[in-house]
């Protein structure tokens, strides 16, 4: 474990870091190009290799014709993701607690089968359900609304919440709830007063996954909305014409990934404290 080992280790880490950040740097550079700078081959440094232009960025906030206004899609995305995540996290936490503390049996269906039912929802590729969901939302007049998307996203995110929280509760000693019940709490009271306050780490992880998978979904947002409720990924793809404006696409991409990238900092903080311990098993 000498110096060489450390040097090699840092070298490897730097190589991986370069790989991770490369597409972002490339997008940043591209977002300041114009058509001539793009078509003359790969160029990296503004001023040195090409004349920078800000049209990529200005087009994002211009209204109407000159570009697409990204503020509304941004707010839509945020609302749908947050609402669906909160609902999923709430329902999922309760279910996960139930599954980790009680045994259910209906016919041959046991706890593990119920858990599997939840998780198996993730196996279904979104396109399979696109048309049925469309017809269902049409019936309840929820097409092209935030409400409609939240319904669908709950089906998408609930399995994740159940998966993370089941593992998490399995790592919390049962003695904790039993003590509370000896003190006179009802089972439900014990859950809310004692178990839940000790579950911050699990909730953070589950919530984070809900946010990631909700924010990043594309196909449902794409098929179940018309003009009123556009979400961010859909708005970005609307720039994907036969003549792709690389510059605004890059600027748009950078803006849309920033909020979630900030989550990485929060997650890292929790992880360093070791408090994600039980969240994955």
């Amino acid at each position: 474990m000498g110096r060489t080992y450390h040097i090699i280790k840092y070298l490897c880490l730097l190589v991986w870091t370069a790989f991770v950040v490369f597409p972002f740097l490339w997008a940043l550079s591209t977002s300041f190009k114009d058509a001539n700078a793009v078509t003359s081959g790969a160029r990296y440094l503004p001023w040195v290799e090409f004349e920078p232009s800000v049209q990529g960025w200005t087009s994002l906030f211009a209204s109407g014709s000159q570009g697409i206004n990204i503020v509304t899609p941004f707010l839509n995305s945020a609302s749908v993701t947050l609402l669906a995540s909160i609902v999923s996290l709430g329902l999922g936490t309760l279910a996960a607690y139930g599954l980790s503390r009680y045994s259910y049996k209906v016919g041959f269906v046991k706890n593990s089968d119920i858990t599997f039912f939840f998780i198996s929802q993730r196996i279904m590729p979104p396109i399979v359900l696109a048309i049925p969901f469309f017809l269902m939302l049409k019936e309840i007049q929820a097409l092209d609304t935030i409400f409609g998307l939240v319904i669908v996203y709950v089906a998408l995110l609930l399995p994740i919440a159940v998966w993370v929280m089941t593992d998490f509760f399995a790592s919390i000693p049962k003695e904790l709830d039993e003590m509370a019940m000896i003190d006179g709490c009802t089972p439900i009271g014990a859950f809310f007063r004692v178990v839940l306050p000790n579950s911050t780490a699990g909730l953070v992880v589950a919530g984070m996954f809900c946010l990631i998978f909700g924010w990043n979904d594309f196909f449902f947002a794409f098929i179940l909305t018309f003009t009123e409720t556009q979400l961010l990924p859909v708005a970005i793809v609307s720039l994907n014409s036969s003549v792709t404006p690389w510059w605004s696409l890059s600027a748009f991409a950078l803006i849309s990934v920033t909020p979630l990238a900030l989550i990485a900092i929060v997650v890292e903080r929790f992880m360093s404290r070791g408090s994600l311990a039980g969240a994955f098993r």
């Binding site: 991770v20 490339w26 961010l232 990924p233 970005i236 991409a253 849309s256 990934v257 990238a261």
Partner: peptide
């Protein structure tokens, strides 16, 4: 951690 937070459709375009 950052790449997993980004939207696949968007990053694929890049």
């Amino acid at each position: 951690l950052v790449p997993m937070m980004t939207t696949p459709v968007v990053m694929s375009v890049i």
